[in-house]
Amino acid sequence: MQKVGLIGLGAMGRGMAQSLRRGGYAVHVHDVRPDAVQAFAAEGGTACSSPADVAKACDIVISVVVNAAQTEEVLFGANGAAAAMRPGSLFVMCSTVDPNWSVALEQRLEAMGLLYLDAPISGGAAKAASGQMTMMTAGRPQAYEKAGDVLKAMAANVYKLGDRAGNGSKVKIINQLLAGVHIAAAAEAMALGLREGVDAAALYEVITHSAGNSWMFENRMAHVLAGDYTPLSAVDIFVKDLGLVLDTARAAKFPLPLSAAAHQMFLQASAAGHGREDDSAVIKIFPGIELPKKAS
Rank of each mutant, 00 (worst) to 15 (best):
9 L>C: 00
11 A>P: 03
17 A>S: 10
19 S>M: 02
20 L>D: 08
31 D>N: 15
35 D>E: 15
42 A>C: 09
45 G>D: 12
48 C>F: 06
48 C>Q: 08
49 S>I: 07
53 D>T: 12
62 I>F: 00
70 Q>M: 13
73 E>H: 14
74 V>Y: 06
79 N>Q: 15
80 G>H: 07
80 G>L: 08
84 A>V: 05
84 A>S: 12
88 G>C: 04
93 M>Q: 12
93 M>N: 09
105 L>Q: 15
106 E>V: 09
114 L>K: 09
115 L>T: 10
117 L>E: 01
119 A>C: 15
120 P>C: 01
135 M>W: 08
144 Y>G: 01
145 E>G: 13
146 K>A: 10
147 A>P: 08
147 A>T: 02
151 L>H: 05
153 A>W: 02
157 N>F: 09
160 K>I: 13
162 G>T: 09
166 G>R: 04
169 S>L: 07
172 K>Q: 11
173 I>T: 12
186 A>V: 11
200 A>Y: 09
201 A>C: 03
205 E>S: 11
212 G>T: 04
217 F>Y: 15
221 M>V: 13
228 D>Y: 12
229 Y>I: 13
230 T>Q: 14
242 L>R: 10
244 L>E: 01
244 L>W: 02
245 V>W: 02
251 A>Y: 00
255 P>L: 08
260 A>E: 13
260 A>Y: 04
263 H>T: 13
264 Q>E: 15
267 L>T: 12
270 S>I: 02
285 I>M: 08
